[in-house]
Amino acid sequence: MGKRQSRPWIVPDELWSLIEPLLPEPPPKQVKGRRRGVPNRQALCCILFVLPTGIQWEHLRAELGFGSGMTCRRRLTA
């Protein structure tokens, strides 16, 4: 077994290279507006942080570096 990661929600490059091709492309925008704010990898890290910790999506602090918790929640449920 490998060394245990101190932050298991961080997705290593090797794993990301396997996951990224499996993610669907975002749907085309119907109206011009803001671009997608949270990259897919960052959203995945957010989801991997929230699920085992049980923190509520709306209480996820921006200082953790994941972006909006509600955005990550929408990505998970979409």
Rank of each mutant, 00 (worst) to 15 (best):
M1Y: 04
G2L: 08
G2I: 03
K3E: 10
K3I: 09
Q5T: 07
Q5L: 06
S6N: 05
S6A: 12
P8G: 08
W9D: 11
P12D: 15
D13M: 02
E14L: 06
L15N: 05
L15A: 12
W16E: 09
W16F: 07
S17Q: 11
S17G: 00
S17V: 01
S17D: 11
S17R: 13
L18C: 06
I19V: 13
I19F: 11
P21G: 03
P21V: 02
L22M: 15
L22W: 07
L23N: 13
L23E: 10
P24G: 01
P26Q: 08
P26H: 05
P26F: 10
P26M: 08
P27Y: 06
K29G: 01
K29Q: 14
K29S: 08
Q30K: 11
V31F: 10
G33K: 13
R34Y: 01
R35G: 12
R35Q: 11
R35A: 03
R35I: 00
R35K: 14
R35T: 01
G37V: 07
G37Y: 00
P39E: 15
N40C: 01
L44H: 12
L44S: 02
L44I: 15
C45K: 06
C45H: 12
C45A: 13
I47K: 00
I47P: 10
L48H: 09
L48E: 08
F49H: 14
V50G: 10
P52Y: 03
P52V: 04
P52K: 06
T53P: 03
T53F: 04
I55F: 01
I55M: 07
W57Y: 12
W57A: 03
E58T: 01
L60P: 09
L60Y: 06
A62C: 03
L64I: 00
G65L: 08
G65P: 06
G67E: 13
G67V: 04
G69C: 05
G69L: 02
T71F: 05
R73C: 05
R75K: 10
R75F: 03
L76A: 08
T77K: 10
T77A: 00
A78S: 15
